[in-house]
Amino acid sequence: MAEVAQPIESQQSPIKQEEQQQNGDIEMLNGADSQTPIEGEKKEEEGDNKQDEPEEEKIPEDACETLYLQNLNEKVRIPVIIETLYSLFKPYRPLHPVIAHRNVRMRGQAFISFPDVKSANEAKKDVSEFPLYGKAIQISFARGRSDSIVKKLEGDEKFDEHQAHRLEEKKKKRRNNPLRQKAQAKLKAEETGAPTTKKQKLQMPDEYLPPNSVLFIQNLPEGTTSDDLREVFEVHSGLVEIRTIPAKKDIAFVEFQDENSATLAKDALHNFKIDGETKMKVTYARK
């Protein structure tokens, strides 16, 4: 019997094999493209991710736990200002007390402290220019730490050192005050008989001026207003009028109903420190 020939596996032509190989390479390339992002797309995605991450805010180098507030409405009473400021800054955990003074030199200003620098920085950023009683608050960091902060964070021992250093700095500033140095130089020149730089005008000494119902106020601190003087002089009966001089802001005239009322006010308020530091001079006015 004749043997049946086994079928030989079909062999493809070289051209067809080359076409299949090319088709396979194309499919592999397409598959790679669909799975692996291009390098440019990678960088773009990384950039987008970086933009989504919030940048950490930097705290200024001069930051401290205490804020210095300016441009406060001077017509509002001090207790009201203090209570309002504490309520305004309440979300940032302010510490007691809020410092605000009624004297002329510190009017319209206040100090408020916080538990840490971060809270103070957030309060400064959020509340700055807030229109409080019709005036935009101006806020900056205080030059130094407040007494309450030092006592809270450093303890009593450090607080005593801080307070002593602050008082010494205050005395130093007073000693170096140009007006004080000028007055001391003038007094020394008068005692030694040395000629002064300016020609002295001959005037009748104050103690020889005849009493009258009008008082002459001198050496007033900068920024003193008629309202400030009224607060001081109205405690004495018989006050009629207070006249300030726009061209010369360190003097004023205060008129009483009679000589007796003026004399009582003069004796009580001569050398009174209207701002806690500067002594004002009270004499009878010249007729």
Rank of each mutant, 00 (worst) to 15 (best):
E53N: 12
L269M: 12
V214Y: 00
D116C: 12
I26D: 13
P60G: 02
Q6W: 10
V232S: 01
G144F: 08
E190V: 00
R230P: 01
Y133N: 13
N219H: 11
P60V: 01
I112T: 00
K281H: 10
Y86G: 07
Q163N: 11
H96C: 08
R230V: 06
Y92I: 00
N176M: 13
E191V: 01
D228W: 02
T278G: 04
F114V: 03
S34E: 13
E222M: 14
I149T: 09
L209S: 01
A183M: 07
I38W: 08
H96G: 05
R166S: 12
E168T: 09
I137N: 00
S237R: 11
L88A: 04
T66C: 08
S119E: 01
E255W: 07
P210W: 02
T225R: 10
T283Q: 07
A110H: 06
S148Y: 05
E74F: 02
K158W: 07
K188S: 08
L85P: 00
E74I: 15
K182I: 04
A185V: 05
A262F: 04
I59H: 07
D48F: 10
S34T: 04
N30P: 05
S34Y: 00
E122P: 01
K135F: 05
E56K: 14
E191F: 07
F233T: 06
Y86L: 10
V4K: 14
T192G: 01
E231T: 11
T84S: 11
T224S: 09
E255G: 01
H270F: 00
N30S: 11
K201M: 09
E3A: 11
R175G: 04
L29Y: 12
L88P: 05
H165F: 13
R286W: 06
Y208R: 14
M204P: 05
P97T: 01
T278Y: 00
D160P: 02
Q35L: 14
V76L: 11
H96E: 12
K75G: 13
D160K: 14
M106I: 03
I38S: 14
K266M: 15
S113F: 07
